[in-house]
Design a protein around this nucleic acid. Structure first.
Lengths: 106, 106
DNA sequence: ACGTTATTTCGATGAAAATCGAAATAGAAG
DNA sequence: CTTCTATTTCGATTTTCATCGAAATAACGT
């Protein structure tokens, strides 16, 4: 069920903690940033962080690669873009939505 | 706190039921669609639907106007677009994100 | 092999969300 | 002004989530 997936992907950043965690791999870029490096700023237990990253990976929006002893989460751009596209399509289901005139810079 | 708001807005469609409900005003367009008209397809109690719509309004993504004895939820496009813009900015924090090359049609 | 570091898995707990049914409210229509 | 319809509010229940600490796992350096 497609809507199941989309809903889960939208839920992934659905609270401040989760949104912050989602931003880590996105902002880190292709080099990535070890998971543990971002633990302290948020004051989360390692297990909590791991839990969130695991769910994030479960949505498909993020992948995780082992690099030696650390894990590097990376943004999975294709599904992210797909999700954005879906949201835009939904949003513009109504032809009077001004997005159909003023296209915001990407 | 900006991130609080964004997280709440992302959570609003954060499960299949909520996503379906979010889509109602968006797809109905400016004429809107009475809340109760969409209750049956989802098999939700009226009170549950009301609860979800109330939260949706709380995020700012949707407004609700009384029209006679029924309520019409309507998409609030400005904040929706703002949210999309935010997501795109986040997503493209990394200059290698291909969105910075292939700009998808809006 | 051994200890170190990074992370996950497990089990528990408190907090929040989703859901319902019943009763309340607010217009509309007689 | 009573009844009907649409929706909300309330209170209770079940389910799901966020979080932690402790123990397990996995690669690394020695």
């Amino acid at each position: 069920m497609k809507i199941e997936i989309e809903a889960r992907q939208l839920d992934a950043p659905g609270n401040p903690t989760k949104l912050n965690i989602c931003r880590i791999p996105v902002r880190a870029g292709p080099n990535g940033l070890p998971v543990g490096r971002v633990k302290e700023p948020f004051g989360l237990a390692a297990s909590t962080l791991s839990h969130h990253i695991g769910r994030l990976v479960g949505t498909g929006l993020v992948t995780k690669n082992r690099q030696g002893s650390t894990f590097i989460p990376r943004a999975n751009y294709r599904p992210m873009i797909a999700l954005l596209g879906y949201l835009q399509d939904e949003c513009c289901a109504d032809e009077t939505c001004f997005l159909n005139e003023e296209i915001p810079a990407a």
